[in-house]
Simulated assay, not measured.
Amino acid sequence: MDFLIGLLGQQLSRRHEYAADRFAAITTGRAQPLIDALRKLSVHNLSNLYPHPLYVLLNDSHPPVLQRIAALEAIETSRRVV
């Protein structure tokens, strides 16, 4: 039971992380500073930029850095188009 609840909790946490990134990008009007910060943190923390999807599903409460950056870049691009 704990395993299933943990999976759901981690999925919810990842969803909230994307929402927080989107909120920050829209509120400040720029996603680039957050993208730069994520890149610096990943270098400093020696993050695995290409974790296996199953590992992410089972263990991570945050989305992988490159997926967060891609989502932020999509927000930045959509703001330019509009």
Rank of each mutant, 00 (worst) to 15 (best):
V65K: 00
R22H: 05
A71V: 02
L34S: 04
S47V: 02
L12M: 12
Q10S: 06
K40A: 09
I5W: 11
V43A: 13
N45K: 14
H16D: 12
L54W: 06
A20N: 08
G6H: 05
G9Y: 05
G9L: 05
I35K: 01
E17F: 06
T28G: 15
S78W: 06
L46K: 05
A70S: 11
I5A: 12
P33Y: 14
D21A: 12
D2A: 13
G29N: 06
A31T: 06
Y50I: 09
N59Q: 11
D21N: 15
R80Q: 01
Q32F: 05
L41C: 08
R39W: 04
S61N: 13
Y50F: 12
E17P: 00
L8F: 11
R22Q: 10
Y55G: 03
R30G: 05
T28P: 03
S61R: 07
V43D: 04
L12G: 10
R15A: 10
D21I: 02
V82A: 14
H44T: 06
L66S: 03
Q10V: 01
E76Y: 00
A70T: 02
R15T: 11
T28E: 12
D60R: 09
F23R: 15
L72E: 02
N59S: 11
V43W: 09
A19V: 04
Y50T: 14
Y55K: 14
L66Y: 02
P63A: 08
T28K: 09
E17G: 01
